[in-house]
C-alpha cells in the first residue's frame, strides 16, 4: 500500500480513470504497437500488392499507376518463372526437411535427456550462431565449398569431388543458417511433453520406435510445423546465400532483386514478390486444415 501520489493528485486521478475504464487501459497498452503494425507492416504489404498491378513505361522507365494484369500474365506465360518458382519451393522444402531431421534428435536430447545444467548451455549454444552476421556465415560456407576448401580437402583423398557452388551448396548453407529456428520450437514443444507419457507408453507395452511414432511425434507435430514455417519462409525469400554459394542458380528472391536493381521494373518485382506470399498462405491454410495446430 505505498501510494506516492498525493490524494487527488494527477497521477492518482489517472490511475483511477484507467482502473475504471478497461478499454482505455487496453488502448493505452496497444495503440503504439498497433499503429506500427498497421502502417509499417500491413501498409507496406498493401503497397506491394497494389504496385504489382502497375506497369512501367517502356521508354521513360516511369511507373504507370494504372491497374492491369500484364505482370501476372508474363509470370504465367514465361516458363522460366515457373521453373524458378518450382526450384525455390524445392530448395525451401529440402532445407525444411533437412532441418527437421537434424533438429528433432537434437531438440529431443536437449529436452528429455540432458541434465538441467547441460540444457541451459545447449540452448545458449543453439542461439550463439544467431549473433554472428548472416553474411559472415554465408561466406564461411563459400570457403568450405570452394575448390581448395575444407570439403574438397576431406573428399579428395577418397576420389570424390565436392559439389562446388550450386543448389546443393545453397541448400546446405540455408539449412545451416535456419537450423536454430527449427530447434527452438521443437525443443519448447518437447519440453512441454510430460515424461510420464513416455513412461506410460512403455508401461502399456510400446517399444522405443512405437512410442516415438504414436506418442512423441503426434504431440510434437505442431512444434515441427511452427519450425517449418520459419525455415520454409526464410528459405523461400532468400537471395543472398544463393548469390554467394549458388553459382549461376536463380531463386525467386534473385528475380525480385534483379528487377528492382538492373531492370528497374518495380511493379514486376512486386508481382514476383507476391509468389512467396501466396505460397506461404497456401502452406498455412493446408497446415490448418490438417488440424495439426489444434493442440497448440
Amino acid at each position: 500500500m505505498s501510494i506516492t501520489a498525493t490524494p487527488g493528485g494527477p497521477v492518482r486521478r489517472l490511475a483511477g480513470l484507467l482502473h475504471r475504464r478497461p478499454y482505455l487501459r487496453l488502448a493505452t497498452l496497444l495503440s503504439a504497437p498497433l499503429l506500427w503494425l498497421v502502417v509499417a507492416y500491413l501498409g507496406s504489404l498493401a503497397a506491394l500488392f497494389a504496385a504489382a498491378f502497375w506497369t512501367t513505361d517502356d521508354f521513360t522507365g516511369e511507373v504507370v499507376k494504372q491497374f492491369n494484369l500484364d505482370n501476372f500474365q508474363e509470370l504465367w506465360s514465361q516458363t522460366v518463372y515457373r521453373t524458378i518458382t518450382v526450384r525455390s519451393v524445392g530448395v525451401a522444402a529440402a532445407v525444411t526437411v533437412i532441418d527437421a531431421a537434424v533438429a528433432f534428435p537434437m531438440a529431443f536430447y536437449m529436452a528429455k535427456i540432458a541434465s538441467p545444467r547441460a540444457q541451459r548451455w545447449l540452448v545458449i549454444a543453439v542461439l550463439t550462431p544467431l549473433w554472428a552476421s548472416y553474411l559472415v556465415k554465408a561466406y564461411a560456407w563459400r570457403i568450405m565449398f570452394s575448390g581448395s576448401g575444407v570439403l574438397s580437402w576431406i573428399l579428395d583423398p577418397f576420389g570424390i569431388h565436392g559439389p562446388g557452388y550450386g543448389l546443393p551448396a545453397t541448400i546446405t548453407t540455408l539449412a545451416y543458417l535456419w537450423l536454430p529456428y527449427m530447434i527452438l520450437p521443437i525443443y519448447a514443444g518437447l519440453e512441454r511433453l510430460p515424461n510420464s507419457l513416455l513412461d506410460a507408453a512403455g508401461d502399456l507395452g510400446a517399444r522405443t520406435f512405437r512410442t516415438f511414432r504414436t506418442v512423441i511425434w503426434p504431440v510434437a507435430v505442431p512444434a515441427v510445423i511452427a519450425g517449418s514455417i520459419f525455415t520454409f519462409s526464410l528459405s523461400l525469400g532468400d537471395y543472398i546465400t544463393v548469390k554467394i554459394v549458388g553459382g549461376k542458380s536463380q531463386l525467386i528472391g534473385n528475380v525480385v532483386y534483379d528487377n528492382i536493381g538492373a531492370a528497374d521494373n518495380l511493379p514486376f518485382a512486386a508481382a514476383v514478390a507476391t509468389i512467396p506470399v501466396v505460397i506461404m498462405v497456401i502452406y498455412l491454410v493446408a497446415v490448418r486444415r490438417t488440424g495439426a495446430l489444434d493442440n497448440l
Binding site: 510430460p194 510420464s196 507419457l197 513412461d199 506410460a200 507408453a201 512403455g202 508401461d203 502399456l204 507395452g205 510400446a206 517399444r207 504414436t214 506418442v215 504431440v219
Partner: peptide
C-alpha cells in the same frame, strides 16, 4: 514393456 504390470500415473499421463 516386458513386464506384466500396468501403472496408473500420478498425473494420469493420458495421451
Amino acid at each position: 514393456f516386458e513386464r506384466d504390470v500396468n501403472t496408473v500415473f500420478q498425473d494420469y499421463a493420458l495421451f
